[in-house]
Nucleic acid binder design. Sequence first.
DNA 1: CATGGTGGTTCCCTCGAGGTAACCAGTGGC
DNA 2: GCCACTGGTTACCTCGAGGGAACCACCATG
Lengths: 129, 129
Amino acid sequence: MTAPIAPLTQIMREYADPSACPVRNVLDHLGDKWSVLIITALAHRPYRFGELRREIADISQRMLTQTLRDLQADGLIEREVFPTTPPSVEYRLSPMGKSFVVPLSAMVDWAFEHFPAIKEARAEFAKAA
Amino acid sequence: MTAPIAPLTQIMREYADPSACPVRNVLDHLGDKWSVLIITALAHRPYRFGELRREIADISQRMLTQTLRDLQADGLIEREVFPTTPPSVEYRLSPMGKSFVVPLSAMVDWAFEHFPAIKEARAEFAKAA
DNA sequence: CATGGTGGTTCCCTCGAGGTAACCAGTGGC
DNA sequence: GCCACTGGTTACCTCGAGGGAACCACCATG
C-alpha cells in the first residue's frame, strides 16, 4: 500500500505560499469546528436554517450563519430563499458538495473504525508518561 | 450517489458529548495546522526530526515536537531513538497511520481536483456581494 | 398587546492554538 | 575557546476562532 500522495517536497516547492496550496487551502477551511458536521447533515437531505440549528444542538446561531456562508462561498452548498411568510431558507449540497461527501465519508468511516484503537493508544501513551 | 454516512441525528443522539463522538474527536485532532502535512511526509518514508523540520519549511520547532507527540499518542506514528552521538530520532507511520493514508489521499485528491472550481466559486461569491 | 417563530447581524469577551526566542546536554570541528 | 548540530523544553505573547447575548423586521397566534 504505497502512498498515492504526490511527494510533499514537490508540493511544498510548487506551492511555497501556503494559501496557494490546494491541500492546505481547502482542508484548513474544512477543518474548522462545524463544516464537516453541516455537510454531514446536508448529505442526507436539504435542511432549513432552523432545522440545522436544532439538529446540531451545540452550534451557536452566529457560527451556523458564518459556516454556511463560507461553504456557500466555496460553492459546496446552495442557498434558496422561499418567499413565504416568514421567509424560509433552504440549504442543500451543490454537485461539488455531493462529490465531497465521497472522500469525507471515507474519513468518517475510518474514524469510526479506528476510534477504539486510538483511545487505547492514548491511554497507553498517557500511562507510559 | 446516496450518502453512505450514518444519519447525523443518530450520531448526535448517540454521542451527545462531542468529545465522545468518534468523528469530532478524531477529525478535530487531525484538523489542526500541521498533522496532515506531517502524515503526508511520513507517507513516503520515515523521517528524522531535523529532516521534517527542513521539509515543512514554515513549521516552528515547538509545533513540530508537539504535533509529533500528539500523533504518537494517537498511535498514528512511531518514534525510534538511535543511540548515536548526537542521538538521532526517526519517525515513521504505524500500521494504523498507514491505513489513514488511504482516506487522507482521497481527500487530498479531491482538493487538488476541485481547487480551481472552489477558487472560481469564491471569486463569483465575492463579486456578487 | 404580548409572545413566539422566521433567519439573521452586531458587539463584546474568552481562551487556546500557534509563533518567537532563549536555553539545555553532549560532542565534533576549527 | 567558540561555534554548530543533534532533538528537544520552556516562557512569553499575539491573534483570531468561537461563544453568548442582545437586537432587527415581519407575521401569526392567543
